[in-house]
Every structure is written in C-alpha cells, then in structure tokens.
C-alpha cells in the first residue's frame, strides 16, 4: 500500500472544505469512491477528482501535494492515521481532532487545531491567528494534544485553551494565551503585546523576558525553583522539534494573572 496522494490540480479561486478527506471518513472507500466524493466549494460542490489528481490507496496515510491556503478543514475530527501536507493549508486545520498526526511543510491560516482534543499537529512554517482556540462565541478551546509551530503564530494563540500544549519555536503574536483556562503554551522566540490577556489559569513558559514586558494585570510573585519544569523538558525530548534540544531549566520568575479576573494563570520566565 502506498499513501493516498491528493495533488491539487489548479490554482483555486474559491475555498474548498476538505473535511471529508480524513482517514476515518475514507475507511472502506476505494479510489473510485474517493474520486466521486463531493466537496463543498463556495456555493457549489465539486467531485474530488475535479480538484485533485489521486494516486495511492492507503487511507490511513493521506498526502496533500501542491496544497493551498484555500483548502480548509483538513483533518477535521480525525481520530487516527496520518495526514501530510506539502504546501499551505487553509483555516481549521485539525479542528476537533482526537488523535493521529498532521504535518505540514508550509503555513496555515486561522484556527489551526481549533477545539482539538488529542493527537499532534506539526507546522513547519507559520500559523495564523487563533491556534488551538475555541470557535467564535464558544467557550472551550483545545482540550488535549500537541501543536508544534516551527515558525511564528498570529494573534490570540491558545484563546480559551483548556488543556494540551502549544509549542512555538518562533514568535507568538498579540494576545498570546488570551482567556486561557488551562494547558501550556511555550514560546522560544518573542511574544506580542497583551500577553495572557484575561487569562484564568494555565501556564505560559518563556526562556526570556518578552520585549513588551509583563502587563500590569500580572503580579510578580518572585523567583521560584519549580520541580515540574525539568520533567516537562524531559517529555519534550521525544518531539521532532527544537524543544527537544532546549536545555532544561527550573529557575523562573513567576507572574500571576490576569488579576482583572480570577488571576490564577501564570507566566514563567527563565532567570
């Protein structure tokens, strides 16, 4: 068996909803079935074969070639298997996923890992706004799993996040960790303004003081030696990420906030 490969044929004008193209939903389908499946694109539906050249047959190993930022909902609610994307992906990559792996060579648009519950997404590029966030108007962001971004993320990373891990090798945009309820965000690069805005609980881990400092909504709780940090760094060792090579530390300056609310979130900065 070789990976089921979907090579985008054209430059897309309209967005395409790729949510039916997951290992779960393609189980038991042969290439002819898949070719005839209809995808929503704008106000039309188009058969898969009109958009993609199809080859291979292993639906548990799906590859998008020549992928575009207009392919939305890739990996929607997947529970197992593997999706590899060469190129960019659109909005809601890995939304609601509960297991399996997604890896992409390019950039993603908004809401990567939106409300995901498990599994891993690795982005070898930049991610847009609302990584691991809750949908607009909803209260629960990602509740499990890991998102690794080798580049930068946009605004509102981890908005309403409840559990799980977002690891950013580059920079995070404004309002990183906004309205966070629990979980961990770690950023190797810099972070934008309003870090931890309206954060309730959860942890933001930084190897250096952010360029804009810590806002007045966070109280400086002094320096601490936290025993859980070396354990966490040890758990990074198995990841295919710069985080695997980060030298562990346990001494941090701890800031608690956002005191505009219950103030039980923490920003930990290496000292």
């Amino acid at each position: 068996m070789t990976a089921l490969t979907l090579k985008l044929k054209t430059d897309l004008a309209q967005r395409v909803d790729c949510s039916p193209l997951t290992p779960d939903k393609l189980t038991g389908k042969d290439v002819a079935d898949i070719a005839a499946m209809e995808l929503v694109s704008g106000r039309l539906t188009l058969p898969v074969e009109e958009l993609f050249d199809i080859s291979g047959d292993d639906v548990n190993d799906i590859r998008f070639e020549n992928s575009s930022a207009k392919l939305d909902h890739i990996g929607h609610a997947m529970s197992q298997g593997r999706i590899t994307i060469n190129g960019d992906a659109g909005a809601y990559l890995g939304q609601f996923m509960t297991g399996g792996n997604i890896e992409i060579t390019g950039n993603t648009f908004i809401y990567t890992g939106c409300e995901m519950k498990g599994g891993q997404i690795k982005i070898n590029g930049n991610a847009g706004d609302f990584v691991g966030a809750a949908r607009s108007g909803y209260k629960n962001g990602m509740t499990g799993g890991t998102i690794i971004v080798t580049g930068n993320t946009g605004a509102r990373t981890g908005d309403h996040m409840r559990r799980g891990m977002i690891l950013i090798e580059g920079n995070a945009g404004e309002y990183c960790g906004s309205r966070m309820i629990s979980g961990t965000i770690a950023v190797l690069g810099d972070v934008g303004k309003h870090l931890g805005y309206a954060m309730k609980r959860g942890t933001i881990l930084l190897p250096k003081m952010p360029q804009h400092g810590i806002t007045a909504n966070f109280n400086d709780c002094g320096s601490h030696t936290l025993a859980f940090l070396p354990l966490m760094f040890a758990s990074f060792k198995k990841l295919d990420s710069k985080f695997a090579k980060v030298e562990g530390f346990s001494r941090v300056q701890r800031y608690a906030g956002d005191v505009g609310g219950i103030g039980m979130g923490e920003i930990l900065v290496k000292i």
Partner: peptide, 23 residues
C-alpha cells in the same frame, strides 16, 4: 448561506477578506 443553511464565521465570511482573496 452557501450550504443552504446559515453558517456563521466572522473571519472567513469577512467580505473585505473575501474580496481581497478573489473569492
């Protein structure tokens, strides 16, 4: 209303974004 029912998304359905992306 693309899918025959109301479907809300304040970012994807932002008309400025739609026009800028020739959608």
């Amino acid at each position: 209303f693309n899918r025959r029912f109301p479907d809300y998304d304040p970012f994807l359905n932002d008309s400025k974004r739609i026009l800028a992306n020739d959608e």
